[in-house]
Design a protein around this nucleic acid. Structure first.
Lengths: 245, 245
DNA sequence: AAGTGGTCTAGACCACTAG
DNA sequence: TAGTGGTCTAGACCACTTC
């Protein structure tokens, strides 16, 4: 009969690893662990908390604690290369990508001074005005990604980019019409734990990291014309990049 | 006088955000919070635990709890493109990249049957033999990345790749000599919380996610010749990708 | 209404770190 | 050795979900 929270967590982890407790299955609850292991409720709770912060389990209040499921959405950074046919059909993570429809909600457009890091990335003087477009991607009713796009106000003011409906082809088509067609992108990417705000905005389960991506769009003559900051639910996304040379 | 763990954490979070408690600074300890807020020790502890699992703080037993520092190492996936000059000097995250020397330790080479997912990625029959090279990257005495490279045994057996010292130019130079020069790569990337094993292997602080990358190397004629699985300490790395078109 | 997770208390003892 | 974090107990009350 195990005694510590860690040992109880080890037991449960092994039962998850072995498949005895499959993804989506209900774990023994706090009262059950108290009975089975003869520990205090807080100890049982700590054991489950360990699994939750490891990302192995998800708590549903009033219902139970469940083995986490991972059915990723695939984000392919360079579709063109990916579609040239190489490197296909050999994915590591099963890509239930396709056909869950992704919706955009909460789109909001306004103009404001650029944050310092954005101004720097856009090669603008500190405090320059930018058009800010922000929105949320939703899949099956659940938010999975928050995105904020920053564009130099002097460039896009008056165009459809400064309005909610950017028209056919979207922001990039409009940028092309303005003589600022993006053809190269630099993505900087980091993973970290979310803040409380972010947890709420993306409905994140405890123990879920986020992936923060800054994508800078550059024109033919190497001018940065957009910075897009994306915040992805890491429990939902797999990122794919195709690299040459 | 705040009461709950959450409220205490909010206070501390705000003091961190405002810069009053700078990265590396010592937070008020459990006894101090008990005195200041008039709560039980477990409640004070829970408040600090919230910050730790958010990745904002790091505990050092016997010493105190400290505001986390983030001084990333930059991993540039496609150096050639990066060095063509575009998109430089506009990084979002300050890249203290360069000059901390990175060492390889614990290199271990052996031959074994390929795990199913690796066999699939390498286009090999299930259970085919692969040469496995695994090692650890260490910076300033701290492990920051674990890597495991899988290569088809039929291809590399007998070459220096199957030995610990691969010689000048490393694995890729040897693959080129074998008529299997990698020229394209597919990287699949995911962030998640680490297992206990991984936490120990990489000396991860609580609240630190890992980034898991599978890189498949392809030859000119589109044959996969290596799968490299990397596990990165997300508290230490920023990834950079250059994407065209 | 019963069962589940969520939070808190007040106290105990241990293990590690620093001066 | 004093101060810090690490873990556990036994009990309380609350909020939410499910039936």
């Amino acid at each position: 009969m195990a005694q510590t929270a860690r040992q109880i967590a080890d037991d449960l982890r092994e039962r998850i690893g072995s498949g005895e407790l499959a993804p989506g299955a209900r774990l023994p609850g706090e009262p059950a662990l108290v009975r089975q292991y003869g520990v205090a409720k807080e100890t049982a709770r700590r054991a489950l908390t360990l699994l939750v912060t490891e990302g192995l389990a998800v708590r549903r209040r009033g219902s139970g604690t469940y083995v986490r499921e991972f059915q990723p959405i695939r984000r392919v950074a360079n579709r063109r290369l990916a579609q040239e046919g190489w490197g296909r059909g050999r994915s590591i993570w099963a890509a239930d990508l396709g056909e869950r429809p992704m919706k955009v909600t909460g789109l909001h457009v306004h103009e404001a001074p650029a944050p310092d890091d954005i101004a720097r990335a856009l090669d603008l003087p500190t405090g320059s005005s930018v058009v800010i477009r922000d929105w949320l991607f939703v899949v099956e009713g659940e938010p999975v990604q928050a995105a904020v796009s920053y564009l130099p106000a002097d460039l896009v003011r008056g165009s459809a980019i400064a309005r909610e409906d950017t028209g056919p082809g979207g922001t990039y088509a409009r940028l092309a019409e303005l003589g600022a067609k993006p053809i190269r992108f630099v993505e900087e990417l980091r993973a970290r734990m979310p803040s409380q705000d972010e947890t709420e905005r993306l409905h994140l389960a405890d123990g879920t990291p986020v992936v923060e991506i800054y994508r800078t769009a550059l024109t033919e003559d190497d001018r940065p014309v957009e910075v897009n900051r994306m915040l992805l639910d890491a429990g939902v996304y797999v990122m794919e990049y195709h690299v040459t040379s």
